[in-house]
Design a protein around this nucleic acid. Structure first.
Length: 241
DNA sequence: CCTGAGGACATACGCTCGCC
DNA sequence: GGCGAGCGTATGTCCTCAGG
């Protein structure tokens, strides 16, 4: 069994808590870290952020969120009422603005207060995922980000950084499917105490590690995990696929 | 019918190259 | 060495099409 909790603890020693989207509704005023989503306590704001960050760095998502906030349009009802064109103009800095304007409107239609309350009460992860995935504009990663960060459900988010780091470490083949990757993490973190808190922090620290050391062109010689890394030793990640 | 591969989307990032 | 231009790449999801 891969000791993912060990890596988690190591990350925690190196990077510390990242203060991403808080688990409680209480707004935190965490110190600013460029490239990390913070200070968005409201559930629908988190959902907006999760959609806007598709294929986009967080710094540009912040610009789009700032535009919405500045124009007092950062709310579900405003998104529903605004024309697609106007919305697209405001979220321009986050890229794919025409597509994302439509996606945000779809999400705004779906996440009514009644629906959100029902989702909050539900703990059937398979059902929750199937509900969210049926919304046009919400794919696997966005779905899981929303469940974890907006609804505090114990779901592990798999992204390109996760794949890169853990396939290089030699744990699992990069080419495996999203569900296979997710199962790997969730099976191996079954015994983590507060799963939601651990998954939240783990994903945030994975992003930090991918940006700091495990880049596209990795900085292996400086990497704190180099001793355990297959990539460092062989120039290749896990070959099982 | 279902599944999977591959292109499209729209932009920013991060290289490389050439210039001063 | 510093700068900017230009170009290739990365990004997550949707859609189409081929093959079973």
């Amino acid at each position: 069994m891969a000791d993912l909790l060990k890596i988690y603890k190591k990350f925690y020693d190196i990077y510390g808590p990242q203060g991403w989207w808080p688990l409680s509704k209480k707004k935190t005023h965490a110190r600013h870290h460029s490239g990390a989503p913070q200070c968005y306590g409201d559930r629908f704001e988190i959902i907006i952020g999760a959609i806007l960050t598709q294929n986009t760095s967080w710094i540009n998502v912040e610009k789009a969120l700032h535009n919405l906030k500045k124009n007092k349009k950062l709310g579900r009802n405003f998104i529903i009422k605004m024309t697609r064109k106007k919305l697209a103009k405001l979220i321009r800095p986050s890229g794919y603005f025409n597509m994302k304007a439509l996606k945000l409107k779809n999400a705004a239609d779906f996440f009514s207060p009644v629906k959100s309350a029902a989702l909050m009460q539900c703990n059937d992860l398979n059902y929750l995922r199937s509900e969210l995935l049926a919304v046009n504009g919400i794919g696997p990663e966005t779905c899981d980000s929303i469940l974890l960060y907006a609804f505090a459900k114990p779901v592990f988010v798999i992204d390109a950084y996760t794949r890169r780091i853990f396939s290089r470490l030699g744990f699992i083949g990069e080419k495996l499917s999203y569900p296979e990757w997710q199962k790997f993490f969730m099976d191996n973190l079954k015994n983590a105490g507060n799963k939601t808190a651990v998954f939240n922090e783990y994903h945030a620290m994975i992003v930090a590690h991918a940006k700091m050391y495990c880049r596209t062109k990795p900085l292996c010689s400086e990497c704190p995990l180099k001793k355990n890394c297959r990539y460092r030793q062989t120039g290749k990640g896990c070959l099982n696929s």
